[in-house]
Amino acid sequence: MAGWNERVTDLSIASTMTFDDVACAFPASLQEALELMADEKTRGRLLAGGTDLMVQWESGVLAMPERAVSVKALPELRTIEETEADVIIGASVTHMDIRRSPLTQKHVPSLVDAAATIGGFQIQTMGTIGGSVANASPAGDLAPSLMITDGAVVLASVRGEREVPITAFWTGYRKTDMQPDELIVRFRLPKMPEGYREAWRKLGPRQAQAISKVMGSCRGCVEGGVVKSFRVAIGSVAPTCVRLYDVEKWIEGKKLNEGTLAEAEKRTSDSITPIADIRSTAEYRKWVTGRIVRGFLEQFADQ
């Protein structure tokens, strides 16, 4: 950092490093990557598609690290598979892979819809699900669709693997439950049950290439106008993406009508305290989050 001149106005001189100064390792296997990460001397900033990190480094928002470890090409992290109950998505699977896979399209449709709204084709082709989740931005568009599955992040290190529920993975603004020697290897996402539906809604300043003002996903089932099950998660309104457990609990078992819809909208807005930033105001976010949840329920009720 430019220590001598403390009051730099120009982001371009905030960091005096360039990407050429970063020593980037390209391990050939997962085992090799885990070993690199195990040792403090070889450990580096994990780099997948680079679509978040490169921008943050270039602009000086994030200091460039001395070392990086690229995991984008690790074959173990690049597959989408299924078991009886779950879809298993490797950490280096790209947003474009998610859009195109019949497995994700069938079993986690709102994740597919969310992936389709991230950046443009170039970003979707480079950016990965593991990178997006590790970046831990509250505006990360995949987060709500992952949260509503009640699935898990699988972390690995030379010490072995462990599963963390997605709902517990983000511990604060840009903070995660990962240890310094761990990397994300895959996501285990329970499939959408028979008769259930998912929905996705993103509000951005424009129709494409937009960072969300507010976005959310839901998974649920409405039978005979009565809510049998409803899970909803919203991003960009708190330090992390949030599940709205109180709203979920309240609406379950209720018959959908103007009264319950209005109450669900109100309870949703009351349950969050978003902030204002360059993309939107706190008041609008609070209100429109309630509107989005209302819209989800209306959509389910129409079926």
Binding site: A2, W4, N5, V8, S12, I13, T16
Partner: peptide, 9 residues
């Protein structure tokens, strides 16, 4: 040039 610039106050 940028580095030098950061050494002028």
């Amino acid at each position: 040039a940028r580095v030098a610039g950061s050494h002028i106050r």
